[in-house]
Every structure is written in C-alpha cells, then in structure tokens.
C-alpha cells in the first residue's frame, strides 16, 4: 500500500495534467513574448510573469507540499516536448522558478492560500529567473535605467499574472466544484461531520 509520505499518484497526475494545460499556454506565450520584444523598452518583461503561473495555480488547487515545484517542472517539460524555441533552457528555468515558489509556500508551512502568499511566490520565482538571467544574459551590463525598467517590469508582470490573476482563476475554478475532488479534507470538513 501507499504510505502517507509524499504525494500520491492521484496528486502527481493531477498536478502534471494541470501543468500540461499551462505548458500549452507557455508554448503559445513564446511567440507572443518575442513579438513584443524587439520594441526594446522591456515591454516584453510585463508578460514574462505568465511563465510562473503553473506553480501558483497548481499549489492553490491541490494545496500540498511539493506541488508547486512539480507543476513548474511539468509545465516546462510540456513546453519543451512541444518544441519550445528556447529548447533546454526552459527546463532549467522551470526547475529554478518552481523551487523559488516552493520555498515561499514552505516558509508559510503550506497553511496559507491567499493572494498575498501567491504574489510573494510569484515575486520569488521572478528572483529565481533573474538569477538565471544574470548568468545567461549579462543583464548587469545593461545601462542602469534600462536594467531598472527590466527588473521592475518583470516583478510587476509576475505579481499581476501569477499572483493576483492566478488567485482569481482558482477562485473561479472552485465554483465548478472540481477542486473538492483533489484537496485534502480540511478541518471544516471534519467539523461538518461532527455536527
């Protein structure tokens, strides 16, 4: 039998499937991103935050440890398998971004599921992606005003898309009733039984 330790197959499969939906979004987001990129003034960075959304949405739906990391890895491998323009890069970025989001959820001991925590996770993923960019893109060599614009735009975009929007998406999803199938029984559920 399965032990209680770790995620169960049902949790993993649900996370993976949710992530693949976002993998498709990630893949479609690529052409959109580089079509706004040549404008140069980092307008593209405002939409960058979409690539962090799998972690926050999956965490909000399933509410278990490890889900955010797994979701971001699965979404990036989905994007990779569908033939991402960035190739192998997306897997490594996915790993780092998922890890940074996971750290935030772990810091709140997987007990909080509000807008603030997911926005913080989105910001944390942003930091992860910036660390990668520091190695990959020499972003520190951009002129100061340009770099500030770059980082600022990415943070704002991430919080709006993967924080606030992700939260409202899951709120809307809760109304369909599917989230009750996947979440662990909460204290209110037990209270309802004892009534």
């Amino acid at each position: 039998m399965q032990t209680n330790k770790g995620l169960k197959l049902a949790d993993i499969l649900t996370t993976v499937v949710i992530s693949i939906v976002f993998g498709i979004v990630y893949k479609l987001w690529g052409p959109f991103y580089y079509s706004v990129k040549p404008f140069g003034l980092h307008i593209d960075q405002l939409v960058y935050g979409m690539w962090f959304i799998a972690a926050t949405v999956a965490y909000l739906i399933i509410r278990k440890p490890g889900v955010a990391l797994l979701a971001e890895i699965a979404a990036s491998s989905g994007e990779f398998i569908m033939g991402s323009e960035w190739g192998l890069e997306v897997l490594i970025y996915g790993l780092i971004q998922g890890l940074f989001a996971e750290l935030v959820f772990a810091a709140f001991r997987y007990k909080r599921f509000d807008v603030f925590v997911v926005s913080l996770a989105a910001a944390s993923s942003t930091i992860g992606s910036l660390i990668m960019d520091l190695y990959k893109g020499y972003i520190e060599e951009l002129a100061v005003w340009n770099l500030t614009l770059f980082i600022g735009a990415r943070f704002i975009g991430a919080i709006i898309i993967s924080g606030i929007f992700a939260h409202s998406l899951v709120k809307a999803l809760e109304k369909t009733g599917v989230t009750q199938m996947v979440r662990p029984a909460s204290k209110e559920d037990y209270d309802a039984l004892n009534r």
């Binding site: 399965q2 169960k8 197959l9 049902a10 499969l13 649900t14 993976v16 499937v17 949710i18 693949i20 939906v21 979004v25 949405v57 739906i61 929007f165 409202s168 998406l169 809307a172 999803l173 369909t176 599917v178 989230t179 199938m181 996947v182």
Partner: peptide, 25 residues
C-alpha cells in the same frame, strides 16, 4: 479571454486526471 479558456480546460483535465489516477492506482 484566458479565463474563458482555462476554466473549462482545467476543470475537465482535473476530472479526467482523477479518473485515470484511480485506474492507474
């Protein structure tokens, strides 16, 4: 627009994933 697509796609996917997971387990 994204919400309009994501809600049905996600909810169907979750339902399907649950069914497949039970079979796989």
């Amino acid at each position: 627009k994204i919400k309009r697509y994501a809600i049905p796609l996600l909810s169907q996917s979750i339902r399907r994933a649950q069914r497949i997971a039970i079979a796989m387990e």
